[in-house]
């Protein structure tokens, strides 16, 4: 690679972009729903656009919006978004061996743009941990497609939501999106039990002020989930052989 060559001329940039193109339709649809949900939660156009451009994390935005609409305290909004984003904390450990030579500012700048699908595509392309000159062009190629698809469709959603009457109930598309993500996380007995506990706790503690029911639900679900992991007898003993 020629050091003076611009990043976007590097062949890996095109490859990174190509690898994200197939899934950009799904990313765009997600952005559209988030854009609509932001406006329907009562954010005006300037705040919705600011949120889209700065926060750039669909699930966390969708989870934070009902809380913002209901005037929950800031720390509850932030704690909720942090929990929804915890998966990125684990991804960041995966990024570490690749980005180690970069400066802190450069590391944070790159990881800020790394959505779930960038991680999946990158780890498929570069399974061997360790820095290589091909990696950054590949990443930025993927980001160019992913970020653009997301932001364009998010802006389209913001514009549409401003025109379509609230009575249509399009804001509920955001709740349906959360429903779908929740479904993808229900993968075994522990997660089902934790979800049931979170649901019961969220309702049971609903009368608490400041939307503390959400904090209670998260704490209860983590406690039960970890207990299930540590103390439940192995399935083989629980289940009769079939």
């Amino acid at each position: 690679m020629n050091a003076s060559q611009p990043l976007w001329r590097h062949p890996e940039f095109a490859r990174g972009a190509r690898d994200m193109t197939g899934i950009s339709l799904g990313i765009g649809a997600w952005g559209l729903v988030t854009g609509i949900a932001m406006v329907k939660a009562g954010l005006g156009l300037p705040l919705a656009i600011t949120m889209s451009l700065l926060v750039f994390a669909g699930s966390a935005q969708l989870a934070a919006l009902p809380l913002i609409a209901q005037g929950a305290p800031l720390w509850v909004i932030w704690a909720t978004a942090f929990c929804v984003n915890l998966r990125f904390v684990i991804f960041s450990a995966g990024w570490r061996p690749y980005f180690a030579p970069l400066s802190l500012r450069h590391r944070l700048w790159v990881t800020y743009f790394m959505a779930d699908l960038n991680y999946v595509a990158f780890m498929k392309r570069f399974p061997q941990p360790g820095p290589m000159s091909d990696q950054l062009p590949y990443l930025w190629g993927g980001v160019a497609v992913n970020w653009t698809a997301w932001q364009l469709m998010s802006m389209l959603g913001i514009g549409l939501a401003d025109v379509i009457p609230t009575q249509w109930g399009l804001g509920f598309a955001g709740s349906l999106a959360l429903l779908g993500i929740t479904g993808t996380l229900l993968i075994d007995r522990g997660t089902w039990i934790a979800a049931a506990v979170a649901a019961c706790a969220a309702f049971a503690a609903f009368a608490l002020p400041f939307h503390l029911n959400i904090v209670v639900a998260i704490a209860a679900a983590i406690a039960i989930g970890v207990l299930v992991d540590h103390f439940a007898p192995p399935r083989a003993i629980m289940r009769a052989p079939s």
């Binding site: 699930s59 989870a63 009902p66 809380l67 909720t80 929990c83 929804v84 984003n85 915890l86 998966r87 904390v89 684990i90 709740s175 959360l178 429903l179 993500i181 929740t182 996380l185 229900l186 522990g190 997660t191 934790a194 979800a195 506990v197 979170a198 649901a199 706790a201 969220a202 309702f203 609903f206 029911n213 959400i214 639900a217 998260i218 209860a220 679900a221 983590i222 989930g225 970890v226 992991d229």
Partner: peptide, 17 residues
């Protein structure tokens, strides 16, 4: 361990109401 359950719990608690 917390990671397995925290995102799910936060989503359920926000979504159900």
């Amino acid at each position: 361990e917390a990671l397995r359950y925290a995102p799910l719990a936060a989503l359920v608690a926000v979504l159900l109401p």
